[in-house]
Structures are given as C-alpha cells and as structure tokens.
Design a protein around this nucleic acid. Structure first.
Lengths: 203, 203
DNA sequence: GTCTATACTGGGATAGAC
DNA sequence: GTCTATCCCAGTATAGAC
C-alpha cells in the first residue's frame, strides 16, 4: 500500500472513529457531517471522497460490526435451554456487552430507522430481525414441550425491546446509574422467574 | 364565545388533530409544519398564530393528554400485588391501551427526546418518570417481604421499556401483527412467571 | 385570524485549485 | 486526496394585504 493510499485509509478511519464517538455523545440525528469532519480534523469536502452520505457511513459501520459479530456468533446452536438460569444469564450477558461495544451503531440505527419515512413498520421489522437467534431458542424450547408465555416471535421481540431500550437509555450517559452486572442479574431474574418467582432459589 | 373566536378555536383543533394523525403515520421528526397546515387545510402562516413551533404544539398535546390521564389515574393506590396474575394483567392492559390511545404523543415524545442534544440521559429520565407508578407497586411488594428481581427503579424501567418499545414498533403499522389481547396476555405471562414458569397453572 | 409571498438559515453537497 | 469556497434546497419563520 502506497503512502497516498495509506493517508486515505487513515482519513477514512479517522472519520469513522469520530462518527462513532459523536453518535454516542450526541446521537446520530444530532451529529452533522461537518461535526464529524471537524472532530476528525478534516475538511468538509473530504468526507464525500469516502462516503456518499451520513447514511452511507452508517452502512459502513454496520458492515464492520457484522464482521465482528459473525466471528463471535460463528455457529451458535439453537439447542440452548433459556429456562436454565446459567444459560439465560450467559445469553443476556453476551447480548448486553455486544450492545455496549457496538453502541454507536446501535444508537444510530435506532434513530435512523425511526426517521425512515415510507416504512412505518421498519422498527418492528428491525426488532424481529435482531431477535432472530433468541426466537430460535424459544422455538426449540417449544418443540421440547415447554409452554412459552406466547408466540416465539412476540416473546423474543418483547425481550429484545426491553434489552435495547434499557441499553439505549442507560449506556449513553457517561456514568450509568447501574453497573453492567447488576443490570444483567436483574434481567435474568425477571425474565426467568418473572415477578412471582424471583425470590426462589435456583434449582 | 364570538364567531371569530370560534373559528380560531376550530383552526387550533384542526391543527392538533392533523398533527396527531401525521405523527403516527410518518413520525414526529418527519412531519413538517407545512405538512400539518396542509393536512388541516390551513395556510402555513396560520400555524404560528397558535403555536410558536412544532415543539410547542407537542407541549400542548402533552397537556391535553395529562388532563385525561389524571382523571383516569385519579387516586391509584400503591397497594397492588403485581404477583397476582389478574392484577398484573389489569395493569398491563390499562398501560397498553393508554399508550394506544395516546400514540401520537408517545411517538412524538419518543422521537423528540431522542434529538434533544444537550441531555444524553433524557431518555433514561423519561423512562424512570413514566414508570413511576409501577415502581411504587414494586416498592410496596418489597415492603411486604417479597423478593424482587432487582432494584425497583431498574425493574420498573425494564418493564416500561419492554412495553413502550413493543407498542411503538407494533401499533404504528395500520394492521399490527398481533391483536391487543394477545400482546397483553403474552406480556402478563412473561412478566409474572418468566420463561421458566409460564406453563404452570395460576394459583 | 387567515392568507400569500418572501426572507432567512442550517446543513448537505459540489467545483475546482492545490 | 484534501482543501476552500460556494451553491442549493428544504423548512422555518415573518411581513403585510385582506
């Protein structure tokens, strides 16, 4: 790779990193392209050499994220018993930390879908898509003869909505009101035993 | 009230109603002031005779909503046992239908808070505020010696987040993927018994 | 109070020198 | 590839006639 190309790559990286930082700090919609270039110490015009628009930049970040995620998730078997406290907690823990690490993208997508005009069901579709793995686990449980609280897609969406809203609300402030562990513990207890059985010892 | 004033009130109402409709259909951020006046069959300039800005109009809608809500909630006792299936379901049912009825405002606030620059914790604050009643019930349960899944504020926020995200995602499309009853039933089962105890008969 | 017409502004996007 | 300067538009908000 030549010096010229290296410099270009450097700029692209700088833009991405500036964007990630700003998306968390002030949100996707509030972040203007000029904010990004300024934060990356580049001129406004340079932005368009690398991305066609802010949406396009987000797409790129999303691609980066998927790259990481597909390694981590590699071959995730659906034969997991979410009624088992340990397994449920492990899942929630991974989910929570995945969101935390990818917070810029999560935030941006959240806000971006929201302003997508011609698809008022975009948010629902995204929610269903994001909770696909969860749904598979639930369907597996159902096949095992376990009675679910309801339709797997709906239950998965409900759980996912709880998780993402909480993360969005909690993680964006510099020092969250609750540490990660406590959140994951609480969600585990709530989702496993509900409100009625939370106090009981785990088998 | 004179004819003149009556006509003015009529316009104001028309603007509000147009706004409510559009906020659900295309979202708050996507709805431009000119869209509202057009939908209400009024001239652009007329808008400012009644509201200083779109934000101001939202404030007005919020005030209207609070008026209705305070009647309904009047004196809601905190001595409710949310571990009781019937009581839990009743609460979720009221919450769900309240959101449904006030969907325009719920959607608008959601999007508006999101773009509020200087307060990145706005969403968290709103969530805590909205789930206050729920929190009181949980604190009551705790006082009764019941073991909660976690800190009442956090649990309440988690439940509220689940509810509002689901409502936002589901209710905005013309024909939701699930009927209200099914959603409320599912949430009731999930929140009461969690994933592990859902199949058991209610005591 | 409501209208039409217009001024103003933020910010996305491009042109052209370097 | 990056820069500076500029164009351009959507949307907000105002002016002034009716």
């Amino acid at each position: 790779m030549g010096v010229r190309k290296a410099r270009a790559a450097e700029t692209q990286t700088a833009l991405k990193e500036a964007a990630r930082r700003l998306f968390v700090e002030r949100g996707y919609l509030n972040t203007k392209i000029t904010d990004i270039t300024a934060a990356a110490d580049r001129a406004t015009g340079s932005f368009y050499e690398h991305f066609a628009s802010k949406q396009d930049l987000l797409e790129a970040l999303l691609t980066d994220m998927r790259g990481d995620a597909s390694e981590a998730m590699a071959e995730h078997p659906r034969e997991h018993d979410l009624t088992d406290r340990t397994q449920l907690r492990a899942h929630l823990d991974v989910a929570w930390h995945t969101i935390r690490v990818n917070l810029p993208v999560v935030v941006a997508l959240h806000e971006s879908d929201m302003t997508d005009s011609d698809r008022s069901d975009k948010v629902w579709l995204r929610l269903v898509e994001e909770t696909e793995v969860l749904r598979h686990h639930l369907e597996y449980l159902r096949e095992q003869g376990h009675d679910l609280p309801g339709d797997p897609t709906l239950v998965a969406a409900a759980m996912g909505g709880m998780l993402s809203t909480l993360a969005y609300a909690l993680l964006r402030s510099g020092n969250p009101a609750y540490p990660d562990d406590q959140v994951v513990d609480t969600l585990t207890a709530l989702l496993r035993n509900g409100l009625s059985g939370a106090g009981k010892a785990q088998p």
